[in-house]
């Protein structure tokens, strides 16, 4: 049996840990609320934008409309935009993203270049010796289009220069506070039927005829396509942020609960050790008395 003083010290350190985790839990709780608010505010626009892109991609004369709609004849280079967190202590959040990257990259025959958002993903991919084209980290908590546009711009421009043939987006989809799912989405070239979520949102039949474009086809597509594509990256980052904060909140809640349970168990052990010590002392005294009187 451990001696009482050691156990007491452990109880103290476990209690300290539980205080830290509880504080982190509280911080994440407020961040998660903000992140979910932002997600819900921006979701309608992003979903609509994606829908419009899908409709454009479903046009009968798609390949003549915009270079971002054109499938390259062979897939020789691929870019993946990987969105992870800057910090750990978020349960399995970061490792799930990396696992999704691993699973996905097995199915890709061509060399993959990575654009990472978040330090954790960057470090993990570097450790695995992956080719990192660019990395972005320390993004502000309230994201705007301007914060993400360099990330998206880079992917779009590289695609337009025909240096890569496909662009994928790997992020964590926020379903609710408990459930987040890493997903891989094909961003470029724009294709129809890539995201089944869109199918359920679309209330109309697929387009039969082509669009009428105003003021003219070229100028509106030049404006819409890159912008809405980059918006999808922004949306993915917002979803990932909400997932990260809620994953961290859950992880910290579990840690706090565990620490409390551990402290209780240790307290029991401490009581036992203390009683044992008292019993031992009593035995010593009784033994001593017996020895003198006997």
């Amino acid at each position: 049996m451990a001696n009482a003083r050691e156990v007491k010290q452990r109880i103290k350190s476990v209690k300290n840990i539980s205080q830290v985790t509880r504080a982190l839990q509280a911080v994440s709780a407020s961040k998660v609320r903000k992140a979910i608010d932002q997600l819900e505010d921006t979701r309608p626009y992003s979903v609509k934008a994606w829908q419009v892109l899908q409709h454009i991609a479903g046009q009968p004369d798609r390949s003549t409309l915009h270079p971002m709609l054109i499938k390259h004849p062979s897939v020789e280079n691929v870019i993946a935009i990987v969105i992870s967190g800057d910090r750990g202590l978020a349960g399995a959040y970061n490792s799930n993203v990396i696992r999704a990257v691993e699973d996905w990259s097995k199915s890709i025959q061509s060399p993959v270049k990575y654009i990472t958002v978040g330090k954790r993903g960057r470090d993990q991919l570097l450790r695995r010796g992956r080719d990192i084209l660019a990395e972005f980290s320390n993004l502000p908590a309230q994201l705007s289009y301007m914060d993400i546009s360099p990330v998206g711009r880079l992917a779009v421009d590289t695609f337009l220069r025909e240096e890569v043939d496909e662009v994928y987006l790997i992020y964590t989809q926020f379903i609710n506070r408990m459930i987040h799912r890493p997903v891989v989405k094909k961003l470029l070239p724009l294709e129809t039927g890539v995201d089944e979520r869109v199918k359920t949102f679309a209330e109309s039949e697929p387009l039969i005829g082509g669009y009428i474009f105003e003021p003219d086809q070229k100028s509106i597509l030049e404006e819409i396509i890159p912008r809405f594509t980059i918006l999808q990256v922004l949306h993915a980052v917002i979803e990932s942020f909400a997932s990260e904060h809620s994953a961290r909140m859950v992880a910290m809640k579990n840690a706090t609960d565990n620490a409390i349970a551990l402290a209780d168990a240790l307290q029991l052990e401490y009581n036992k050790a203390r009683q044992q010590a008292i019993t031992n002392e009593m035995l010593d005294i009784a033994g001593g008395v017996e020895a003198i009187s006997g």
Partner: peptide, 19 residues
């Protein structure tokens, strides 16, 4: 307010994309 002036959209309008 479309880019080429005001537009009224009625049910059954042809597919259109405009600024």
């Amino acid at each position: 307010p479309g880019s080429l002036g005001e537009m009224g959209i009625l049910p059954g309008h042809a597919p259109l994309l405009s600024t």
